[in-house]
């Protein structure tokens, strides 16, 4: 059995006190422990931003990538080693701005990875500029006249038939852990957009602001198996913000259809295909 101790990182987080990332970190650890996954069975692929530091504050294999580029190496690693539980930690800038193309195509191809978007609706690491999810009219250092309309990541995911579309809230660690657990267990791409209060640079979407608005879909009678209903639910934003699984269905996973390496193959020993001789003969 894995324990929370197994996931205790050596480094002390450098996040601001009160940062939503603490909740996400705790939820990730809890989910992995509840799934009984050991650190060596996890690969965290993180982006750049405060989110990208998360893997350093727990334990697991870590590939800390470039800004916006966490998705491509993550899906490739999963193709090569299907035994790895691949978790992407990325922010709203990396996922929905710099790397949106990668996210859309990875959801479309349906790789079996879990993508946690630390969505604080602002650029934190660069000290407070507008992000792709900054609310319309939001005043930031780069949008002194107000931000243009935001992207709706849940609708984007639904548009490419992502099989697990969810929203979590960093302050509700137990609920978020439950969503992450379901996302990791889901066969296929899981997009989890996480409302993450930024105490330093987002003075609109604060802890309090979110707490007044979020509600859990569980218990409301909502079933996440209807795409049309999901399409409507994904547009609910403002006075009430739904959290939980918005849409879920299984469809073929990209890497499972590939005739590549056996997941238990010893990677350290290269076996060159015996077919090469035949291929050379084809050119004679």
């Amino acid at each position: 059995m894995s324990t929370l101790e197994d996931f205790a990182g050596a480094l002390t987080p450098s996040w601001c006190p009160g940062c939503g990332n603490f909740g996400i970190l705790n939820a990730v650890k809890n989910a992995l422990v509840e799934l009984n996954i050991a650190p060596h069975e996890v690969l965290f692929v993180s982006d750049i931003g405060q989110n990208g530091k998360l893997p350093h504050y727990t334990r697991g294999n870590v590939f800390n990538s470039l800004h916006g580029r966490a998705v491509p190496p993550a899906v490739a690693a999963k193709i090569i080693n299907r035994n790895l539980n691949v978790i992407i930690d990325i922010g709203d800038g990396g996922a929905y701005g710099e790397g949106l193309n990668h996210l859309i195509h990875a959801m479309r191809r349906n790789h079996d990875v879990t993508c946690l978007v630390h969505d604080n609706q602002v650029y934190g690491l660069t000290l407070g500029q507008a992000s792709p999810t900054t609310d319309i009219g939001g005043i930031t250092k780069t949008t002194p006249q107000g931000a243009p309309p935001p992207v709706n990541p849940l609708l984007l995911a639904l548009a490419v038939d992502c099989g697990f579309v969810a929203r979590g809230f960093a302050d509700d660690v137990a609920h978020l852990a439950k969503i992450i657990k379901a996302g990791v267990a889901h066969r296929g791409f899981a997009l989890i957009d996480i409302l993450q209060p930024c105490v330093s640079f987002n003075h609109k979407n604060t802890h309090q602001w979110y707490r007044e608005r979020v509600y859990k879909l569980e218990g409301t009678g909502y079933l996440p198996d209807d795409k049309t209903a999901a399409w409507q639910k994904a547009q609910e934003w403002g006075a009430k913000i739904p959290t939980g699984v918005i849409y879920r269905h299984e469809r073929p996973v990209y890497e499972e259809a590939l005739p590549v390496l056996d997941p238990d193959e010893d990677l350290e020993h290269i076996v060159v295909s015996g077919k090469i001789d035949k291929l050379i003969t084809e050119f004679v």
Partner: peptide
């Protein structure tokens, strides 16, 4: 989906062992 993805995928695959 593009060359940026291509080189980053290749790096991820190599990291994973091939």
């Amino acid at each position: 989906e593009d060359e940026i993805a291509a080189i980053n995928m290749v790096t991820g695959a190599s990291y994973a062992g091939v």
